[in-house]
């Protein structure tokens, strides 16, 4: 499948069905994007597991760090990779050995590894690359709209006031299949550049 642009339904389906998420590369430093995303997803009711060998013995907003995917004591639905793109391949290899197997590999904004992606998809896993689950959740629920971000969704329904731990409805009308015309162009330009070089 095309990993430049995702259909909203694809992302929606993943975020709606996941319960337990292991975040590899979660940072205890509160200005790192991984910390933001970890905290937000925990507040939206996901069972979050921080994975970072340098932080074992400590915890992230009350959740104890584990050193690696092998050290997780419960079934994991999704692996969220907050590492560089090269680290994604060995992580997917490791994820495929887990029982039960995770269903989704999610690579963070700026992280893309097409080999790792192919390996996971061939094993029947869903893959998202170069996206942030916090941003996507905030977008599809329109919670992100407070800062003028184009959620690219519409709804005439009254939404509840979000409280701690509440899962929000992601089932709004999508404007277009996935990304904006601008994002399409950015992807096209990137391809042009790759083809030229």
């Amino acid at each position: 499948m095309n990993h430049d642009i995702y259909d909203d339904d694809y992302i929606r389906g993943i975020l709606d069905s996941m319960k337990t998420i292991a975040m590899v590369g979660a940072s205890p430093v509160n200005v790192r994007p991984s910390y933001f995303a970890f905290k937000y997803l925990a507040q939206r009711g996901y069972d979050m597991i921080p994975v970072n060998p340098g932080q074992v013995g400590k915890s992230l907003i009350g959740k104890p760090f584990v050193a690696s995917l092998d050290d997780i004591d419960r079934a994991v639905d999704m692996i969220d990779i907050f590492r560089n793109s090269e680290a994604a391949l060995p992580l997917v290899e490791q994820a495929l050995k887990m029982t039960p197997r995770p269903k989704v590999i999610w690579m963070q904004l700026g992280v893309r590894n097409d080999d790792a992606c192919a390996l996971a998809e061939n094993a029947g896993l869903k893959v998202v690359m170069n996206r942030c689950p916090k941003i996507e959740y905030g977008r599809l629920s329109s919670e992100i709209s407070w800062m003028g971000v184009n959620s690219r969704t519409l709804s005439s329904k009254r939404a509840p006031v979000p409280t701690q731990g509440m899962r929000l409805s992601l089932h709004r009308v999508s404007v277009g299949g996935g990304d904006t015309a601008a994002a399409d162009r950015a992807a096209r330009l990137k391809d042009d550049k790759n083809n030229r070089s």
Binding site: S142, N150, S155, K157, R158, A159
Partner: peptide, 8 residues
């Protein structure tokens, strides 16, 4: 419609 929804 874009950006607007009934007040929560």
């Amino acid at each position: 419609h874009a950006g607007a929804q009934p007040d929560p």
